[in-house]
Design a binder for these strands. Structure first.
Lengths: 279, 279
DNA sequence: GTAATAGTGTCTTTCAGACAGTATGAC
DNA sequence: GTCATACTGTCTGAAAGACACTATTAC
């Protein structure tokens, strides 16, 4: 479950110790999606709108405490942030290297050197690091969030690796806040999917109120993409693309008042690929 | 399992009656993917390369003969066509309305009028037909293959609808060849996914031999996209995009001999989004 | 007035799409 | 020679990216 507040994407967690995603067992629900909605209602008291099946995780390593093997079907849910019995945690606390809105370099000290040490002279490992993190000629690709988490996990730079392998943690640095079982991998999968979808489907609007300023829209996209966008061109892009329409109402912002816009649902009938364009 | 031969995409089926996809139960395999590879080896004697998780189907309606509920995790597998104990069937026999390489209009007589009849005066139904099939202002979008199958199913224009609802078929037309259970829905899901991926990932090359002519590449893409492409521009697109490199070897074709090209794997290091571009 | 944010005009480069043309084989 | 296929050159209009500029508020 994802929401964006104050320009920070957040995901909803439950549990008092390590944060966990809402989860539970399939019962005699008619569909997987209905089962998921039931679990959300029961555990955090929400009823949600936009949902999308994400990925199914079925490694044998997922065995539960009672020894039963589980197959987990993960869903991505987009919503506006509301108060709930769950706890919203900043997505970038879990995956801090994914937020490049600040100084564009490496905002997570020690991470790249840790990966370098892991890769050593291994050609294939070095290639994977280069491809995932955009080293040298290779540009950074926000969509590769899952690849990056998997590298970090394999390199023993995620706390979960030691839990999964029943080993004592060594004295190396760990990066990002750990989650229950493979839930952080699910969170990384969701980030990849959502970033990919932003550019060709109007999913951002699920995260925004009915009306919003163009700056608000842009900052929401930036927070999910993890990088800054060109403000003027973004404005033109969404207006000319027919993605939004002005309402005539204005709102004060600290500078010149901004017009409130709303999403034009009709745009779906006009163009097959509708989104905020390349990131 | 998908292959392209003679400019026609084909999927591998088993079973003597209605065609079915390779399927079977998860056993004590370490991962879902390994289970799938085992089933493919056992049932059609192949070992495959590119695989990708597609979707998980879990409606209660999927109950088996023994009454047990099943959750099915579908995978998309791309391969070169080889002889096997299975049977390759033309994807467009199953979903004939998806092939628009011929006369660009409606190549499946009776389909649109059947949908019109089903929609009647219902605004929402008419909107869905317009959006999925590209009526009026709305352009055709190859990626919406799943939407189209679902409409056809709901409209009672797919034979599976009557099987699923335990009803006697009426005298309306049915479109495309039916499959076992919900396997045709899986096939439609795969087509949507594959078409979407073509434009931003170099997946076509999984379906081609090591070397190929640019015409061969283009016709393979066309067969999957279900529509013709502009030959000259396609050539420039893939060459300038660094997607392929010439080998210097030529092959006779019936006209001027064509150069054989190969996929440039290095391109993945240079650009994050690599594919054949917009379709 | 300054600072801050909103919004516009325009230029350049890139790229998609279309068209016309040339090249090289089989027959 | 014709036919078929392969390949190249070039024009046009759309769109992406960058920059400079104006507008309207709070203080």
């Amino acid at each position: 479950m994802v929401a964006v507040t104050d320009d920070r994407p957040r995901i909803l967690t439950v549990g008092s110790e390590t944060p966990a995603l809402v989860s539970g067992d399939l019962d005699d629900d008619d569909t997987l999606e209905l089962a998921m909605r039931r679990l959300i209602t029961d555990q955090v008291g929400l009823s949600v709108g936009y949902v999308e099946q994400l990925y199914t995780f079925g490694d044998r390593a997922r065995a539960r405490a009672d020894g039963l093997r589980t197959v987990g079907v993960a869903y991505l849910v987009l919503t506006r942030e509301v108060t709930t019995t769950g706890r919203w945690v900043d997505w970038y606390h879990l995956l801090p290297w994914e937020d490049r809105r600040g100084n564009a370099g490496s905002p997570v000290p020690g991470l790249m050197s840790g990966l370098e040490r892991w890769a050593g002279r291994d050609r294939e490992r070095r290639r994977r690091v280069q491809l995932s993190f955009g080293i040298g000629e290779t540009p950074w690709d926000g969509v590769r969030a899952l690849d990056r988490y998997e590298l970090i996990y394999e390199a023993g730079l995620a706390a979960e690796w030691f839990v999964d392998h029943g080993e004592e943690p060594d004295d190396r640095d760990r990066f990002g806040e750990a989650m229950h079982l493979d839930h952080r991998r699910v969170a990384a999968t969701a980030l990849s999917r959502l970033r990919g979808k932003l550019s060709y489907r109007p999913v951002v609007f699920e995260l925004l109120p009915e009306t919003f300023t163009l700056s608000h829209l842009r900052r929401t996209v930036e927070s999910l993409a993890g990088q800054k966008l060109h403000a003027q061109n973004f404005r033109r892009l969404v207006e000319r693309g027919g993605l939004v329409e002005g309402t005539g109402r204005m709102v004060t912002t600290g500078g010149r008042p901004a017009e409130l816009f709303r999403f034009r649902r009709d745009v779906l009938m006009e163009r097959p690929q509708v989104g905020v364009g390349r990131l």
